[in-house]
Design a protein around this nucleic acid. Structure first.
Length: 753
DNA sequence: CCACATAATCTTTTT
DNA sequence: GATTATGTGG
């Protein structure tokens, strides 16, 4: 079957083709088929884990096209991650062939950027605007902070950037931020800083990630003609992982969909794990209200996991309130119970997991079908070490990324500056790399002039080298650098872009810098630079390459050998494995205290959803484990099993734990027999044990005097967060909390930080 | 202006 | 335990 060749974008294709029921439909179950065939009007597909969500989305796209309702270029399919969009493109291509290229398929950010580039002038940018990475953003905030009077204890640059991003996530430009939010309790002018930040971005001809959507919103609301153009274009809109969308993304979608209302959102409220990044579970919970007359289809038949795995996951997630509610079921029989294992410490846990994996390997299981999923990135280390010593092949997914390496960022900064002279952040990064004798003082001067005259630093530099403002060697090398860039830009038209990249790196002395570097990592860096030049050659031009890098900050997935996969729970979303290990299910680690600190009960529920995501990654074998002792910050701390362990239904798990491992004295019997660990913790009782909410109320040290805390100690409190002890009175501590201010608390509520 | 040493901070997750 | 920010001395 093939799709007619596309022509004008706003015309509709001729009409339905009279084909028999095609394969992509007959392979679906009734619910899935409903979701695929309900083409007109708003549709919400609640798709539990493993219920064939991607299959439905791809079949729906195929169905839209084959039924003759739209050309590929009239279909907008939005995903959340690059991985998901790549996967969807592959699967759609498999169904409909090369015409899939015409689809508007990509991440929110990539699609928004694509649209924004076409109309950049309308919001005061040039079409070649730079997309900033996290590094640039932070540097920019730091610069702005130099002028402003901010308490850097309370408002470190990171936190300020966070506040700005949260506003952007909610679709709020500086004008729309309400007065009550403008300042914090102490009168720090956050909004002013936000305004300055946005101002600066415009003069830099740059946009950060949030801007891609925020400007998109401005574009659509202020320029009806532009919006109308996209209304004509996009006849069908599909959204994956809708539960992860933030308010800005929701508004963006709503604007685009309001003409045709052919909006299909697929999501699972039980897998919403990006609240910390501004995702709004409310978007999915409110869908029916937002789009009256919406159909809702639930996909509840799970094709992935065994009965016990599913039972464990469902039992756990049932502890959350405010769900839309789905009941996953499977018709598959058999399968073993989930193994829940208590171990002495992290090392033993890693050893045990290593042994289990080796046993599977001996039985002929593929390592690439095994995953170890951890809560936080640093936890991968323990497994890396263990797997290395026993010679078990593994790969860490989502570790430090290629484009985040120092040498790559430096090289990128050179290229960005060739492509876009106003990119001050790139300029600052490399003015003195390699060393050219242009120090902080000179940069400061450029900066001041740039800000005062509202021009870029490159511009400021070219003005200043003509004067005597800058003296001596700095002036000479600055002049030379500017001349270099002029020359490179001149070559942009003639030379091949990859060749130009090589020229830039050589002539700037950047390559030489690493060649002369005697440190052990220098050769690797040179290697990476070569790789970078090779990667550039894969693209049509320098601009296309830069766009790719800023939006798809990941290197091509390494050769997929047969290796164990180690990654965070977050990056595991959307993946599945025959065997899954979930280590570190301890209070104080998972749920992560910071998640609890920031959002209380809501934070806990998000952590629980994260646990649910982890459990549902497994097809056949699932192992949950926790350690009684763990070293964090170089301090040994004893931990209690995560409350989530206690929420796994007893009938679905096999609990193995050495008696007496957990707690001390009378508390040990909590773990004799088959007591449900953590059970009582949930619900907020107040027994002494329950007070140790984060599970490591005590450091393991020699017997503690009545008050182990001293004035000046930094501590952590589940409710109030981090703080410093001001006074100690027996077991009562006066603490100055960073966020919550001064409080008096009982020492057992607090842990050393 | 740069190099070195020390201190401090931190480890949630990503487009 | 490591990386990164800050300070000091040349």
């Amino acid at each position: 079957m093939s799709i007619p060749a596309p022509h004008a974008d706003d015309a509709a294709p001729a009409g339905p083709t009279d084909a028999p029921v095609p394969g992509y439909l007959s392979a679906l179950n009734p619910a899935q088929r409903l979701a695929v065939e309900a083409l007109d009007g708003p549709l919400l597909v609640l798709a539990g884990a493993g219920t064939g969500k991607t299959r439905v989305l791809t079949a729906r796209i195929a169905h839209i096209l084959f039924s003759g309702r739209a050309w590929p270029s009239q279909v907008l399919a939005v995903t959340f991650t690059n991985k998901a969009s790549r996967q969807m493109r592959e699967r759609v291509t498999a169904l409909i062939g090369p015409s899939a290229e015409g689809l508007w398929l990509g991440t929110f950010h990539a699609l928004a950027a694509r649209i924004l580039r076409r109309h950049a002038e309308r919001i005061g940018l040039k079409p070649n605007f730079t997309i900033l990475d996290a590094d640039d953003q932070l540097r920019l905030v730091k610069q702005l902070l130099e002028g402003a009077r901010f308490d850097d204890k309370k408002w470190p640059p990171r936190a300020i950037l966070g506040a700005i991003e949260r506003w952007k996530d909610r679709g709020l430009t500086p004008e729309k931020v309400s007065g009550t939010e403008a300042k914090d309790g102490d009168g720090a002018d956050l909004l002013g800083l936000y305004r300055a930040y946005q101002d600066r971005l415009l003069t830099l001809n740059a946009a950060d990630f949030g801007d891609l959507l925020l400007h998109g919103l401005t574009l659509f609301t202020r320029h009806e003609d532009v919006l109308a153009e996209y209304h004509r274009r996009f006849r069908y809109i599909l959204v994956d992982e809708y539960q992860d969308s933030n308010v800005a993304q929701y508004l963006w979608l709503r604007l685009l969909a309001q003409a045709h209302r052919n909006l299909c959102c697929v999501g699972d409220d039980d897998q919403s794990i990006y609240g910390w990044r501004g995702a709004e579970v409310g978007n999915i919970l409110r869908f029916e209200k937002d789009f009256p007359g919406a159909k809702i289809v639930r996909l509840e038949e799970n094709y992935r996991s065994t009965r016990h795995i599913l039972g464990a996951a469902s039992g756990l997630i049932a502890h959350n309130c405010g769900r839309l509610g789905k009941t996953l079921f499977t018709s598959v029989e058999g399968g073993e119970k989930v193994q829940v294992r208590g171990l002495w410490d992290g090392e033993e846990e890693a050893r045990w997991i290593g042994e289990e994996i080796e046993a599977l390997q001996r039985k002929g299981h593929a390592l690439s079908e095994v995953a170890v999923l951890v809560r936080a990135g640093f936890q991968t280390r323990e497994f890396e070490e263990r797997f290395m010593t026993i010679g078990l092949p593994y790969r860490v997914i989502g570790g430090p990324r290629f484009y985040e390496r120092q040498e790559i960022r430096d090289a990128m900064a050179y290229l960005r500056l060739v492509a876009q002279p106003d990119d001050d952040l790139a300029f600052e990064r490399i003015v003195n790399v390699p060393r050219r004798g242009i120090g902080a003082a000179t940069v400061q001067t450029l900066h001041r002039l740039g800000r005062d005259a509202r021009i870029s630093m490159v511009e400021a530099a070219s003005r200043l080298v003509a004067t005597d403002e800058i003296k001596g060697p700095a002036r000479a090398s600055l002049k030379r650098l500017l001349a270099d860039f002029d020359r490179w830009r001149g070559q942009l038209a003639q030379s091949h872009h990859a060749e130009l990249a090589r020229i830039v790196l050589d002539e700037s002395g950047y390559t030489a810098m690493w060649q002369n570097d005697r440190s052990p990592e220098a050769p690797g860096r040179l290697e990476n630079l070569k790789e970078l030049v090779a990667a550039i050659a894969e693209f049509d031009g320098l601009t296309a390459f830069l766009e790719h890098v800023s939006l798809v900050m990941e290197a091509v997935e390494g050769a997929g050998g047969d290796m164990v996969n180690v990654m965070t729970l977050h990056s595991a979303k959307g993946l599945e494995f025959d065997t899954v290990f979930l280590p570190g299910w301890e209070e104080g680690l998972f749920p992560h205290p910071r998640a609890l600190e920031e959002k209380g009960e809501g934070g806990l529920e998000e952590e629980r959803r994260l646990a649910h995501v982890g459990l549902t990654r497994a097809r056949e074998r699932l192992f949950v484990s926790f350690a009684a002792n763990r070293r964090i910050h170089n301090l040994w701390q004893s931990s209690l099993p995560s409350r989530f362990v206690g929420e796994l239904p007893a009938e679905n798990i096999d609990l193995v734990s050495r008696p007496g491992l957990f707690g001390a004295g009378s508390r040990a019997n909590a773990w004799d027999g088959r007591a449900r660990p953590g059970q009582s913790t949930y619900g907020g009782a107040a027994s002494p044990r329950d007070r140790m909410i984060d599970g490591r109320a005590r450091e393991v040290r020699s017997p503690r005097p009545a008050s182990a805390f001293r004035v000046g100690d930094r501590v952590f409190h589940v409710k109030f967060g981090y703080g410093r002890i001001v006074a100690v009175d027996a077991d009562r501590l006066d603490i100055d909390f960073e966020k919550a201010g001064g409080k008096t608390v009982i020492d057992s509520f607090v842990t050393p930080a």
